[in-house]
């Protein structure tokens, strides 16, 4: 059990294990953990040994009013928990902050920074910028044209209606003037950035992905 000498607060091994497991599993599932949501792990009154009678229901006693001492106690617990996570060899926790200032956590072993930043952009609802950044990135990096259906998949999760609406609004915004459509011969639509790809190149890459790669197994 870990102890902080200042506050004399205890985070049991069991609690830590459960929190680590939760962050790892949530990251594995492609989600970020909102830091404030971790209080649910800290609500058990006793954080001692595990051999208590398993038939007893957990004592979930959250008081209706927020007594100042309770508030301070909860904050101290959270601080201790964060410290314990930091110190733990079993996980490397990374933090992101959304536009509203809330903190989110993920496990570096389970989720790449790349993926986490997409999830955060979705949380922040910065869809236009996200689409543009993605398309520009793919046009430059791989390089490839981006199949528009990408944005309906995890973690983007836009509906077709939302997507079409967004794409439509992009077409009138000069910030996104470099983004263009191209189409494969089977009608599948792609986006590319003409900062990084010529129209011809983008079209040929789209054609490969949608049609030709299947003919060249």
């Amino acid at each position: 059990m870990s102890e902080t000498t200042e506050t004399n607060v205890l985070i049991s091994d069991e609690i830590l294990e459960d929190v680590i497991d939760h962050i790892r599993q949530t990251s594995k599932d492609g989600q970020l953990v909102e830091k404030s949501s971790l209080t649910v792990f800290l609500e058990e009154p006793k954080m001692a040994t595990e051999e208590e009678a398993p038939e007893e229901a957990p004592e979930a006693e959250t008081s209706a009013e927020d007594e100042p001492e309770d508030q301070e106690h909860r904050e101290a617990l959270m601080t201790a928990l964060m410290a314990a996570l930091e110190a733990s060899d079993a996980i490397e926790v990374k933090t992101l902050t959304d536009d509203a200032g809330a903190e989110f956590l993920y496990s570096a072993a389970e989720m790449t920074d790349q993926y986490a930043s997409i999830v955060m952009s979705v949380n922040n609802k910065n869809y236009l910028k996200l689409i543009a950044d993605t398309v520009r990135y793919e046009s430059q990096k791989y390089p490839r044209a981006t199949h528009i259906s990408l944005f309906t998949k995890k973690p983007y999760n836009l509906t077709e209606g939302q997507l079409l609406g967004l794409l439509s609004s992009m077409s009138t915004d000069s910030t996104y003037a470099d983004l263009k459509y191209t189409e494969a011969s089977n009608g599948e639509k792609f986006l590319f950035s003409e900062r990084h790809l010529t129209a011809r190149h983008a079209k040929s890459l789209a054609e490969w992905e949608a049609v030709l790669s299947e003919e060249n197994p």
């Binding site: 492609g30 989720m111 790349q114 993926y115 990408l150 998949k153």
Partner: peptide
Amino acid sequence: PQPWAEYHNE
């Protein structure tokens, strides 16, 4: 796109 991966390819 998957959480553990930096890249993906259709």
